[in-house]
């Protein structure tokens, strides 16, 4: 089965490494993908707060484009994943929204008949490929690497499409299949603040501080994320969030970077060098090859 790959805007910017490593995992697991033709911004959480109706129409254009190709969408970014899912449900539940969206799509020669599924890579890896098949392809087990799995909000909330809402475990299982040790991380679905770090900095930092401190307290060597904004927040503001008495420093990677590494990809092809908190010293200490 071929999937329509919908990268979203962040994966072309701050989340470059997410795209690079995700594509590497797709190649290793022989998952066939095709980038969604001329995709547009999903509207993210921002558009919803200014103009809700328009945001559904924007998201629906991507759904309709995928439907035309008869493919399911893979959306790696948490915000894209949620917005596409939400749009599907609201079109189903609210006739007015359906009318607005159908007319808007009609104006550009598209149709939407609710025949496309929106999937997250976690879901595809776990349920379409399976843990055994992945474990069989691991050439570089991440032995001794203790990872705090951070899911953030929008992958499991408000819609539990493939995992538990309070204690998701899909990433835990995938990382364990790659040979890593999963650290206990009770804050795994606590919010990182989203764009709050930019707009109301003190509050953003407060949320970031506790997430990192808890990962360190539980002995994690690295935090794994599934969302470009979570990754950005947790990695780029560690110095600011910490203090002289309680300094914070821990590499924050995308879960796909860890998977790709275990599946044999080299560091440069999965964007390890793009990290601001270098992960190489940790890998060297654990004697995990990454070249």
């Amino acid at each position: 089965m071929k999937y329509a790959y919908y990268p979203g805007c962040s994966l072309r910017g701050t989340g470059r490494a997410y795209e690079e490593s995700l594509l590497a995992v797709f190649r290793s697991l022989a998952i066939e993908v095709q980038e969604l033709d001329d995709w547009n911004c999903c509207g993210a959480t921002t558009y919803l707060s200014v103009d809700e109706l328009t945001s559904y129409a924007l998201a629906a254009r991507n759904l309709a484009l995928a439907e035309r190709e008869r493919m399911d969408i893979i959306a790696p970014c948490a915000a894209c994943y949620l917005v596409l899912n939400k749009t599907q449900r609201y079109i189903r539940d609210y006739p007015d929204i359906k009318t607005v969206v159908s007319r808007a799509l009609g104006a550009i020669g598209l149709e939407y008949h609710d025949r496309v599924r929106v999937r997250h890579p976690l879901d595809v890896f776990l349920n379409d490929i399976g843990l055994e098949a992945i474990a069989a392809k691991v050439v570089r087990p991440l032995k001794g690497l203790k990872v705090a799995p951070y899911y953030g909000c929008q992958i499991v909330r408000p819609y539990a499409t493939f995992d538990d809402q309070r204690n998701p475990t899909s990433m835990d299982q995938l990382l364990a299949a790659c040979g890593a040790t999963v650290a206990p991380y009770p804050l795994k679905t606590r919010c990182c603040g989203g764009s709050q770090k930019g707009t109301l900095p003190e509050i953003g930092l407060h949320l970031i501080r506790y997430l990192i401190a808890e990962a360190q307290m539980n002995g994690a060597d690295v935090i794994a994320t599934v969302c470009p904004l979570c990754q950005f927040n947790l990695e780029c503001f560690q110095k600011e969030a910490g203090s002289i008495r309680h300094p914070l420093s821990i590499p924050v990677l995308y879960f796909t970077q860890l998977m790709a590494l275990a599946l044999g990809a080299s560091a440069a092809t999965i964007g390890l060098q793009r990290s601001l908190v270098p992960v190489e010293p940790v890998l060297e200490a654990k004697e995990i090859a990454y070249a």
């Binding site: 547009n40 328009t54 129409a57 254009r61 607005v100 009609g106 550009i108």
Partner: peptide, 15 residues
């Protein structure tokens, strides 16, 4: 995109 946005604005006004 422009046509899409304009169409939404139009339908919104109409309904």
């Amino acid at each position: 995109i422009v046509a899409l946005l304009d169409s939404v604005a139009e339908t919104r006004k109409e309904l």
